[in-house]
Design a binder for these strands. Structure first.
Lengths: 201, 201
DNA sequence: AAACTCAGCTTACAACTGTTCGCTAATTTA
DNA sequence: TAAATTAGCGAACAGTTGTAAGCTGAGTTT
Protein backbone atom coordinates (compact mmCIF):
# COMPACT_ATOMS: atom_id res chain seq x y z
CA UNK A 1 0.00 0.00 0.00
CA UNK A 2 2.62 2.48 1.06
CA UNK A 3 5.10 0.49 -0.98
CA UNK A 4 4.03 -1.49 -3.98
CA UNK A 5 4.96 -5.12 -4.19
CA UNK A 6 7.31 -4.34 -7.07
CA UNK A 7 9.13 -1.66 -5.14
CA UNK A 8 9.55 -3.94 -2.16
CA UNK A 9 10.94 -6.67 -4.35
CA UNK A 10 13.52 -4.38 -5.86
CA UNK A 11 14.49 -3.25 -2.40
CA UNK A 12 15.04 -6.79 -1.20
CA UNK A 13 17.00 -7.54 -4.34
CA UNK A 14 19.25 -4.62 -3.62
CA UNK A 15 19.64 -5.82 -0.04
CA UNK A 16 20.89 -9.15 -1.35
CA UNK A 17 23.38 -7.44 -3.66
CA UNK A 18 24.65 -5.20 -0.89
CA UNK A 19 24.91 -8.11 1.49
CA UNK A 20 27.01 -10.00 -1.03
CA UNK A 21 29.34 -7.06 -1.63
CA UNK A 22 29.72 -6.73 2.12
CA UNK A 23 30.82 -10.33 2.41
CA UNK A 24 33.46 -9.95 -0.29
CA UNK A 25 36.18 -8.68 2.00
CA UNK A 26 39.84 -9.51 1.73
CA UNK A 27 39.38 -13.17 2.51
CA UNK A 28 36.29 -14.19 0.59
CA UNK A 29 35.71 -14.64 -3.10
CA UNK A 30 32.42 -15.17 -4.87
CA UNK A 31 32.91 -18.90 -4.91
CA UNK A 32 33.52 -18.86 -1.17
CA UNK A 33 30.32 -17.18 -0.04
CA UNK A 34 27.28 -19.34 0.37
CA UNK A 35 23.70 -18.69 -0.52
CA UNK A 36 22.68 -19.09 3.10
CA UNK A 37 25.28 -16.61 4.23
CA UNK A 38 24.08 -14.00 1.79
CA UNK A 39 20.49 -14.62 2.81
CA UNK A 40 21.41 -14.30 6.47
CA UNK A 41 23.23 -11.03 5.83
CA UNK A 42 20.35 -9.71 3.76
CA UNK A 43 17.86 -10.58 6.47
CA UNK A 44 15.78 -13.06 4.50
CA UNK A 45 15.19 -16.78 4.64
CA UNK A 46 17.53 -18.90 2.53
CA UNK A 47 14.69 -20.06 0.34
CA UNK A 48 13.56 -16.51 -0.38
CA UNK A 49 16.78 -15.99 -2.27
CA UNK A 50 15.32 -17.96 -5.16
CA UNK A 51 12.57 -15.37 -5.62
CA UNK A 52 15.29 -13.02 -6.88
CA UNK A 53 18.08 -15.08 -8.40
CA UNK A 54 18.08 -18.48 -10.00
CA UNK A 55 21.51 -19.25 -8.60
CA UNK A 56 24.50 -17.88 -6.78
CA UNK A 57 26.01 -17.71 -10.26
CA UNK A 58 23.32 -15.35 -11.41
CA UNK A 59 23.96 -13.14 -8.42
CA UNK A 60 27.68 -13.27 -9.14
CA UNK A 61 27.26 -12.08 -12.70
CA UNK A 62 25.05 -9.28 -11.47
CA UNK A 63 27.78 -8.21 -9.08
CA UNK A 64 30.40 -8.23 -11.81
CA UNK A 65 28.12 -6.11 -13.97
CA UNK A 66 27.58 -3.62 -11.18
CA UNK A 67 31.30 -3.46 -10.53
CA UNK A 68 31.97 -2.81 -14.21
CA UNK A 69 29.41 -0.05 -14.17
CA UNK A 70 31.10 1.61 -11.22
CA UNK A 71 34.40 1.38 -13.05
CA UNK A 72 33.04 3.06 -16.15
CA UNK A 73 31.61 5.87 -14.07
CA UNK A 74 35.11 6.28 -12.70
CA UNK A 75 36.53 6.65 -16.17
CA UNK A 76 34.06 9.37 -17.02
CA UNK A 77 35.02 11.18 -13.87
CA UNK A 78 38.70 10.89 -14.74
CA UNK A 79 38.12 12.28 -18.21
CA UNK A 80 36.28 15.24 -16.78
CA UNK A 81 39.17 15.94 -14.44
CA UNK A 82 41.69 15.71 -17.25
CA UNK A 83 39.75 18.12 -19.43
CA UNK A 84 39.70 20.66 -16.63
CA UNK A 85 43.49 20.64 -16.36
CA UNK A 86 46.08 18.20 -15.07
CA UNK A 87 48.26 15.62 -16.79
CA UNK A 88 46.56 12.61 -18.32
CA UNK A 89 48.66 10.04 -16.51
CA UNK A 90 48.73 11.76 -13.15
CA UNK A 91 45.02 12.41 -13.13
CA UNK A 92 44.09 8.93 -14.29
CA UNK A 93 46.24 7.16 -11.77
CA UNK A 94 45.13 9.43 -8.94
CA UNK A 95 41.50 8.80 -9.81
CA UNK A 96 42.09 5.11 -10.01
CA UNK A 97 43.83 4.97 -6.66
CA UNK A 98 41.05 6.95 -5.04
CA UNK A 99 38.56 4.50 -6.50
CA UNK A 100 40.43 1.58 -5.03
CA UNK A 101 40.54 3.19 -1.63
CA UNK A 102 36.87 4.11 -1.65
CA UNK A 103 35.45 0.98 -3.29
CA UNK A 104 37.95 -1.64 -2.31
CA UNK A 105 35.47 -4.47 -2.31
CA UNK A 106 34.31 -3.58 -5.80
CA UNK A 107 37.81 -3.53 -7.24
CA UNK A 108 38.71 -6.64 -5.30
CA UNK A 109 35.79 -8.43 -6.89
CA UNK A 110 36.99 -7.58 -10.38
CA UNK A 111 40.57 -8.41 -9.62
CA UNK A 112 39.81 -11.71 -7.98
CA UNK A 113 37.26 -12.97 -10.43
CA UNK A 114 39.52 -11.97 -13.30
CA UNK A 115 41.67 -14.95 -12.38
CA UNK A 116 38.97 -16.78 -10.48
CA UNK A 117 37.44 -20.21 -10.72
CA UNK A 118 34.40 -19.42 -12.81
CA UNK A 119 34.87 -19.15 -16.55
CA UNK A 120 31.71 -17.07 -16.80
CA UNK A 121 33.00 -14.55 -14.26
CA UNK A 122 36.39 -14.42 -15.92
CA UNK A 123 34.76 -13.63 -19.25
CA UNK A 124 32.56 -11.00 -17.69
CA UNK A 125 35.50 -9.24 -16.07
CA UNK A 126 37.53 -9.51 -19.25
CA UNK A 127 34.80 -7.69 -21.14
CA UNK A 128 34.94 -4.87 -18.61
CA UNK A 129 38.70 -4.57 -18.92
CA UNK A 130 38.51 -4.59 -22.70
CA UNK A 131 35.97 -1.80 -22.50
CA UNK A 132 38.48 0.06 -20.42
CA UNK A 133 41.28 -0.59 -22.91
CA UNK A 134 39.21 0.39 -25.93
CA UNK A 135 38.21 3.71 -24.46
CA UNK A 136 41.80 4.45 -23.56
CA UNK A 137 42.88 3.51 -27.09
CA UNK A 138 40.43 5.98 -28.60
CA UNK A 139 41.63 8.63 -26.21
CA UNK A 140 45.26 8.07 -27.18
CA UNK A 141 44.45 8.14 -30.90
CA UNK A 142 42.56 11.41 -30.48
CA UNK A 143 45.04 13.21 -28.25
CA UNK A 144 48.43 11.94 -29.23
CA UNK A 145 47.82 11.24 -32.92
CA UNK A 146 49.29 7.79 -32.73
CA UNK A 147 48.20 5.13 -35.20
CA UNK A 148 45.34 3.00 -33.94
CA UNK A 149 47.24 -0.25 -33.77
CA UNK A 150 50.06 1.30 -31.81
CA UNK A 151 47.66 3.13 -29.55
CA UNK A 152 45.92 -0.13 -28.77
CA UNK A 153 49.16 -1.83 -27.86
CA UNK A 154 50.10 1.07 -25.65
CA UNK A 155 46.67 1.23 -24.03
CA UNK A 156 46.68 -2.48 -23.26
CA UNK A 157 50.07 -2.20 -21.62
CA UNK A 158 48.94 0.76 -19.57
CA UNK A 159 45.77 -0.91 -18.36
CA UNK A 160 47.74 -3.99 -17.38
CA UNK A 161 50.23 -1.91 -15.43
CA UNK A 162 47.53 0.05 -13.65
CA UNK A 163 45.49 -3.00 -12.71
CA UNK A 164 48.56 -4.78 -11.48
CA UNK A 165 49.55 -1.78 -9.39
CA UNK A 166 45.99 -1.56 -8.15
CA UNK A 167 46.20 -5.10 -6.88
CA UNK A 168 49.27 -4.18 -4.90
CA UNK A 169 47.68 -1.01 -3.60
CA UNK A 170 44.65 -2.91 -2.43
CA UNK A 171 46.41 -4.27 0.57
CA UNK A 172 48.65 -1.34 1.36
CA UNK A 173 48.33 1.61 3.69
CA UNK A 174 47.94 5.13 2.29
CA UNK A 175 51.66 5.89 2.44
CA UNK A 176 52.64 2.84 0.43
CA UNK A 177 49.73 3.49 -1.87
CA UNK A 178 51.15 6.89 -2.69
CA UNK A 179 54.46 5.30 -3.55
CA UNK A 180 52.84 2.64 -5.71
CA UNK A 181 50.97 5.38 -7.54
CA UNK A 182 54.17 7.31 -8.19
CA UNK A 183 55.93 4.25 -9.48
CA UNK A 184 53.19 3.25 -11.85
CA UNK A 185 53.00 6.80 -13.16
CA UNK A 186 56.65 6.59 -14.14
CA UNK A 187 56.11 3.19 -15.68
CA UNK A 188 53.26 4.57 -17.75
CA UNK A 189 55.57 7.33 -18.94
CA UNK A 190 58.11 4.74 -20.01
CA UNK A 191 55.47 3.10 -22.16
CA UNK A 192 54.34 6.42 -23.54
CA UNK A 193 57.83 7.54 -24.42
CA UNK A 194 58.63 4.17 -25.89
CA UNK A 195 55.58 4.38 -28.10
CA UNK A 196 56.47 7.87 -29.30
CA UNK A 197 59.89 6.83 -30.55
CA UNK A 198 58.86 3.44 -31.84
CA UNK A 199 59.76 2.65 -35.41
CA UNK A 200 57.50 -0.20 -36.52
CA UNK A 201 59.86 -2.85 -37.94
CA UNK B 1 61.22 -53.96 4.77
CA UNK B 2 61.55 -53.34 1.06
CA UNK B 3 60.71 -49.71 1.68
CA UNK B 4 61.58 -48.02 4.90
CA UNK B 5 58.88 -46.29 6.84
CA UNK B 6 60.46 -42.92 6.13
CA UNK B 7 60.57 -43.52 2.41
CA UNK B 8 56.93 -44.57 2.40
CA UNK B 9 55.92 -41.47 4.29
CA UNK B 10 57.67 -39.19 1.86
CA UNK B 11 56.02 -41.03 -0.99
CA UNK B 12 52.57 -40.54 0.49
CA UNK B 13 53.35 -36.91 1.13
CA UNK B 14 54.26 -36.46 -2.50
CA UNK B 15 51.06 -38.24 -3.49
CA UNK B 16 49.11 -35.69 -1.51
CA UNK B 17 50.94 -32.81 -3.17
CA UNK B 18 50.42 -34.26 -6.62
CA UNK B 19 46.78 -34.93 -5.91
CA UNK B 20 46.30 -31.32 -4.87
CA UNK B 21 48.03 -29.98 -7.99
CA UNK B 22 45.84 -32.23 -10.07
CA UNK B 23 42.72 -30.79 -8.51
CA UNK B 24 43.80 -27.21 -9.22
CA UNK B 25 42.41 -27.10 -12.73
CA UNK B 26 40.77 -24.10 -14.34
CA UNK B 27 37.84 -24.09 -11.99
CA UNK B 28 39.31 -24.78 -8.59
CA UNK B 29 41.41 -22.65 -6.31
CA UNK B 30 43.22 -23.71 -3.17
CA UNK B 31 40.40 -22.45 -1.02
CA UNK B 32 37.94 -24.47 -3.07
CA UNK B 33 39.48 -27.89 -2.67
CA UNK B 34 38.68 -29.81 0.44
CA UNK B 35 40.86 -31.95 2.61
CA UNK B 36 38.65 -34.95 1.93
CA UNK B 37 38.89 -34.42 -1.79
CA UNK B 38 42.66 -34.31 -1.69
CA UNK B 39 42.73 -37.40 0.49
CA UNK B 40 40.39 -39.22 -1.88
CA UNK B 41 42.55 -38.28 -4.86
CA UNK B 42 45.71 -39.31 -3.04
CA UNK B 43 44.20 -42.66 -2.10
CA UNK B 44 44.33 -42.26 1.65
CA UNK B 45 41.77 -41.87 4.42
CA UNK B 46 40.79 -38.29 5.24
CA UNK B 47 42.24 -38.53 8.71
CA UNK B 48 45.56 -39.80 7.44
CA UNK B 49 46.10 -36.40 5.90
CA UNK B 50 46.96 -35.09 9.35
CA UNK B 51 49.99 -37.36 9.55
CA UNK B 52 51.56 -35.15 6.89
CA UNK B 53 50.11 -31.67 7.17
CA UNK B 54 48.65 -29.78 10.09
CA UNK B 55 46.14 -28.06 7.86
CA UNK B 56 45.04 -27.47 4.32
CA UNK B 57 46.79 -24.15 4.79
CA UNK B 58 50.08 -25.86 5.42
CA UNK B 59 49.62 -27.91 2.27
CA UNK B 60 48.75 -24.74 0.37
CA UNK B 61 51.93 -22.98 1.40
CA UNK B 62 53.89 -26.04 0.39
CA UNK B 63 52.30 -25.92 -3.03
CA UNK B 64 53.10 -22.24 -3.45
CA UNK B 65 56.70 -22.94 -2.50
CA UNK B 66 56.96 -25.75 -5.03
CA UNK B 67 55.44 -23.56 -7.71
CA UNK B 68 57.94 -20.82 -6.95
CA UNK B 69 60.74 -23.32 -7.21
CA UNK B 70 59.56 -24.42 -10.62
CA UNK B 71 59.41 -20.80 -11.70
CA UNK B 72 62.96 -20.14 -10.61
CA UNK B 73 64.15 -23.17 -12.52
CA UNK B 74 62.46 -21.64 -15.52
CA UNK B 75 64.41 -18.43 -15.10
CA UNK B 76 67.67 -20.27 -15.03
CA UNK B 77 66.71 -22.07 -18.19
CA UNK B 78 65.83 -18.78 -19.87
CA UNK B 79 69.15 -17.25 -18.92
CA UNK B 80 70.99 -20.21 -20.36
CA UNK B 81 69.09 -19.84 -23.61
CA UNK B 82 69.81 -16.12 -23.78
CA UNK B 83 73.52 -16.62 -23.22
CA UNK B 84 73.64 -19.09 -26.07
CA UNK B 85 72.21 -16.54 -28.51
CA UNK B 86 68.80 -14.98 -29.11
CA UNK B 87 67.28 -11.70 -28.00
CA UNK B 88 66.62 -11.22 -24.32
CA UNK B 89 62.98 -10.31 -24.70
CA UNK B 90 62.12 -12.88 -27.32
CA UNK B 91 63.81 -15.69 -25.48
CA UNK B 92 62.35 -14.77 -22.12
CA UNK B 93 58.81 -14.50 -23.37
CA UNK B 94 59.08 -17.67 -25.40
CA UNK B 95 60.39 -19.55 -22.39
CA UNK B 96 57.66 -18.15 -20.22
CA UNK B 97 54.94 -19.10 -22.65
CA UNK B 98 56.30 -22.60 -22.96
CA UNK B 99 56.28 -22.86 -19.19
CA UNK B 100 52.66 -21.83 -19.04
CA UNK B 101 51.69 -24.35 -21.65
CA UNK B 102 53.58 -27.16 -20.00
CA UNK B 103 52.81 -26.38 -16.35
CA UNK B 104 49.50 -24.63 -16.59
CA UNK B 105 48.29 -25.74 -13.19
CA UNK B 106 51.46 -24.50 -11.55
CA UNK B 107 51.23 -21.07 -13.11
CA UNK B 108 47.51 -20.96 -12.46
CA UNK B 109 48.15 -21.57 -8.80
CA UNK B 110 50.54 -18.63 -8.58
CA UNK B 111 48.29 -16.38 -10.58
CA UNK B 112 45.17 -17.22 -8.65
CA UNK B 113 46.60 -17.13 -5.19
CA UNK B 114 48.33 -13.87 -6.01
CA UNK B 115 44.91 -12.25 -5.76
CA UNK B 116 43.34 -15.00 -3.71
CA UNK B 117 41.52 -15.13 -0.42
CA UNK B 118 44.38 -16.10 1.85
CA UNK B 119 46.71 -13.36 3.01
CA UNK B 120 49.42 -15.93 3.69
CA UNK B 121 49.23 -17.27 0.14
CA UNK B 122 49.20 -13.79 -1.32
CA UNK B 123 52.35 -12.93 0.62
CA UNK B 124 54.02 -16.14 -0.44
CA UNK B 125 53.31 -15.53 -4.12
CA UNK B 126 54.39 -11.92 -3.80
CA UNK B 127 57.76 -13.04 -2.51
CA UNK B 128 58.20 -15.28 -5.54
CA UNK B 129 57.34 -12.45 -7.93
CA UNK B 130 59.70 -10.10 -6.15
CA UNK B 131 62.44 -12.68 -6.52
CA UNK B 132 61.67 -12.69 -10.19
CA UNK B 133 61.78 -8.90 -10.41
CA UNK B 134 65.02 -8.60 -8.48
CA UNK B 135 66.83 -11.05 -10.67
CA UNK B 136 65.61 -9.27 -13.75
CA UNK B 137 66.73 -5.94 -12.27
CA UNK B 138 70.24 -7.27 -11.73
CA UNK B 139 70.27 -8.59 -15.24
CA UNK B 140 69.26 -5.24 -16.69
CA UNK B 141 71.84 -3.37 -14.63
CA UNK B 142 74.57 -5.74 -15.79
CA UNK B 143 73.66 -5.89 -19.45
CA UNK B 144 72.20 -2.53 -20.29
CA UNK B 145 74.17 -0.36 -17.89
CA UNK B 146 71.09 1.39 -16.59
CA UNK B 147 71.07 2.84 -13.12
CA UNK B 148 69.73 0.47 -10.49
CA UNK B 149 66.67 2.46 -9.59
CA UNK B 150 65.64 2.81 -13.19
CA UNK B 151 66.35 -0.83 -13.89
CA UNK B 152 64.13 -1.83 -11.01
CA UNK B 153 61.27 0.28 -12.28
CA UNK B 154 61.69 -1.20 -15.72
CA UNK B 155 61.95 -4.73 -14.42
CA UNK B 156 58.84 -4.39 -12.32
CA UNK B 157 56.88 -3.11 -15.29
CA UNK B 158 58.13 -5.96 -17.43
CA UNK B 159 57.26 -8.62 -14.92
CA UNK B 160 53.79 -7.17 -14.53
CA UNK B 161 53.24 -7.16 -18.25
CA UNK B 162 54.47 -10.70 -18.68
CA UNK B 163 52.40 -12.08 -15.82
CA UNK B 164 49.34 -10.28 -17.05
CA UNK B 165 49.85 -11.64 -20.54
CA UNK B 166 50.45 -15.07 -19.04
CA UNK B 167 47.06 -14.93 -17.38
CA UNK B 168 45.49 -14.27 -20.73
CA UNK B 169 47.50 -16.99 -22.41
CA UNK B 170 46.43 -19.48 -19.82
CA UNK B 171 43.02 -19.91 -21.30
CA UNK B 172 43.87 -19.52 -24.95
CA UNK B 173 44.67 -21.96 -27.70
CA UNK B 174 48.18 -22.11 -29.19
CA UNK B 175 47.37 -19.72 -32.04
CA UNK B 176 46.10 -17.00 -29.74
CA UNK B 177 48.96 -17.72 -27.39
CA UNK B 178 51.42 -16.94 -30.15
CA UNK B 179 49.68 -13.65 -30.76
CA UNK B 180 49.65 -12.76 -27.07
CA UNK B 181 53.34 -13.51 -26.94
CA UNK B 182 54.06 -11.25 -29.91
CA UNK B 183 52.07 -8.42 -28.42
CA UNK B 184 53.74 -8.59 -25.04
CA UNK B 185 57.15 -8.67 -26.70
CA UNK B 186 56.37 -5.38 -28.38
CA UNK B 187 55.08 -3.95 -25.14
CA UNK B 188 58.27 -4.94 -23.39
CA UNK B 189 60.21 -3.16 -26.11
CA UNK B 190 58.16 -0.04 -25.50
CA UNK B 191 59.20 -0.11 -21.88
CA UNK B 192 62.80 -0.76 -22.78
CA UNK B 193 62.96 2.05 -25.29
CA UNK B 194 61.18 4.36 -22.92
CA UNK B 195 63.71 3.59 -20.23
CA UNK B 196 66.64 4.20 -22.57
CA UNK B 197 65.50 7.72 -23.48
CA UNK B 198 64.24 8.64 -20.04
CA UNK B 199 65.65 11.82 -18.54
CA UNK B 200 65.03 11.61 -14.80
CA UNK B 201 63.36 14.94 -13.93
C1' DA C 1 62.24 -61.82 21.37
C1' DA C 2 59.94 -58.08 23.47
C1' DA C 3 58.74 -53.30 23.60
C1' DC C 4 57.91 -49.30 21.08
C1' DT C 5 56.62 -46.16 17.29
C1' DC C 6 53.57 -44.44 14.16
C1' DA C 7 51.22 -44.26 9.18
C1' DG C 8 46.95 -45.37 8.07
C1' DC C 9 42.40 -46.98 9.07
C1' DT C 10 37.22 -47.04 10.67
C1' DT C 11 33.72 -44.95 13.12
C1' DA C 12 31.42 -41.04 14.72
C1' DC C 13 29.69 -36.33 15.26
C1' DA C 14 28.28 -31.71 14.82
C1' DA C 15 28.15 -28.10 11.55
C1' DC C 16 27.11 -26.47 7.35
C1' DT C 17 25.54 -26.62 2.56
C1' DG C 18 21.81 -26.20 -1.67
C1' DT C 19 17.23 -27.20 -2.67
C1' DT C 20 12.19 -29.12 -2.49
C1' DC C 21 7.65 -28.59 -0.66
C1' DG C 22 3.76 -26.55 1.02
C1' DC C 23 1.93 -22.71 3.68
C1' DT C 24 0.68 -17.76 4.78
C1' DA C 25 -0.54 -13.20 4.23
C1' DA C 26 -0.67 -9.25 1.66
C1' DT C 27 -1.02 -7.03 -2.73
C1' DT C 28 -2.95 -6.96 -7.37
C1' DT C 29 -6.30 -8.03 -10.78
C1' DA C 30 -10.87 -9.13 -12.44
C1' DT D 1 -16.08 -8.07 -3.35
C1' DA D 2 -14.08 -12.33 -5.02
C1' DA D 3 -10.24 -14.53 -7.24
C1' DA D 4 -5.52 -14.74 -8.41
C1' DT D 5 -0.75 -13.82 -7.75
C1' DT D 6 3.44 -13.94 -5.27
C1' DA D 7 7.35 -12.51 -1.77
C1' DG D 8 8.70 -14.60 2.06
C1' DC D 9 8.74 -18.32 5.54
C1' DG D 10 9.61 -22.90 8.26
C1' DA D 11 10.49 -27.64 8.16
C1' DA D 12 12.87 -31.21 6.21
C1' DC D 13 16.00 -33.68 3.00
C1' DA D 14 20.40 -35.66 1.56
C1' DG D 15 25.00 -34.49 0.92
C1' DT D 16 29.31 -32.55 2.25
C1' DT D 17 32.69 -30.85 5.33
C1' DG D 18 36.69 -30.83 9.22
C1' DT D 19 38.21 -33.27 12.92
C1' DA D 20 38.36 -36.19 17.39
C1' DA D 21 39.01 -40.92 19.35
C1' DG D 22 40.76 -45.16 19.32
C1' DC D 23 42.53 -49.39 16.93
C1' DT D 24 45.73 -52.19 13.96
C1' DG D 25 49.68 -53.93 12.06
C1' DA D 26 54.00 -53.40 10.16
C1' DG D 27 58.58 -51.35 10.69
C1' DT D 28 62.05 -50.00 14.28
C1' DT D 29 64.60 -50.03 18.37
C1' DT D 30 66.15 -52.16 22.46
Amino acid sequence: MFVSRQEQKLKTRQNIINAAFGLLDENRSLSAISLREVAREAGIAPTSFYRHFKDMDELGLTLVDEAGLTLRQLMRQARRRIDSGGGVIDTSVDTFMEFIAANSNVFRLLLREHTGTSAAYRMAVLREIQHFTEELTDYIVARLSVKHQMANLQAEAMVRLVFSAGAEALESDPAQRQQIGDRVKMQLRLVQMGASVFKPK
